[in-house]
Amino acid sequence: MTAATLRHLLGTRDLSCERAESIFETADAFLEVTRRPIKKVPTLRGKTVINLFFEASTRTRTSFELAGKRLGADVVNMSLSSSSTSKGETLRDTVATLDAMHPDVIVVRHNASGAAHYLAERTRAAVVNAGDGMHEHPTQALLDAFSIRGKRGSLKGLKIAICGDIAHSRVARSNALLFPTLGAEVRLAGPRTLLPRFVDALGCKSYDRLEPAIEGADVVMMLRIQQERLGGASFSTLREYSRVFGLTVDRLNLAAPDALVMHPGPMNRGVEIADDVADCDRSLVLDQVEAGVAIRMAVLYMTAAEAGADLHAT
């Protein structure tokens, strides 16, 4: 395979349509691998991938771990605290230490926006952003787009509603940047308290109610409500939130007849998404999980190839 390579994957902002498509084509091949009885190819044998997670994560970390292992890479998981008050070492020292071990790819999740950029400037390894603060989560956006593409062939001309806590969501941000690049129209919806005050900077239409955003939409993506925001002033009660901003069958009926339902998980059933909607046959939730491994295999493959080339060059 002579796929295009990636130096880093820090966000979807700078990803071109062609580059995204080359990731999807690579993922197509790996999706087939993940469905085989023997789910392993030797593509990244001898390469090292470090999963550097400063935030608790089960799903994303497992997905990256499986992706690396199915490509034959050596995968190391590191879970660290990002609390600056704990007597931990600085991010600068952590990066320098890891870099000295010559990893090919560092997958990083951190609660500070820009943390992946910070790493990328300080290591020879390729850096894959697995979520930085409220900034970006590019592999999630890629797997979302890949899932839609799997059902519809392309995102061109699709209307996609993204609903929920837009302000604090790196998933919403990465999707809002990627989907229009692929030809889709994005509508952002949520209570005004959970929309960025300057939401127009994301270049999408925004709504303070679900109904107009969902109306005629081809895809409805619900975002997870962070329970830890409860009790603040961002929204009143779970009950009211689910009543006004939850995806119910009635609301879904406003969308296009065959509209797809998505959720990055983990779901709060009965809060942002009704039980019956979550399990309906138009739900892509499990397709998204499957796509996640394939997309991450593609990203690791393309970045590790570049990292290797870099090392040979220097």
Partner: peptide, 18 residues
């Protein structure tokens, strides 16, 4: 808050200081 609340903070995902 880490920076001015505006278009740039929205893009960077940094909390805004209005």
């Amino acid at each position: 808050a880490d920076m001015n609340e505006g278009a740039v903070s929205t893009q960077l995902g940094l909390r805004g200081w209005p």
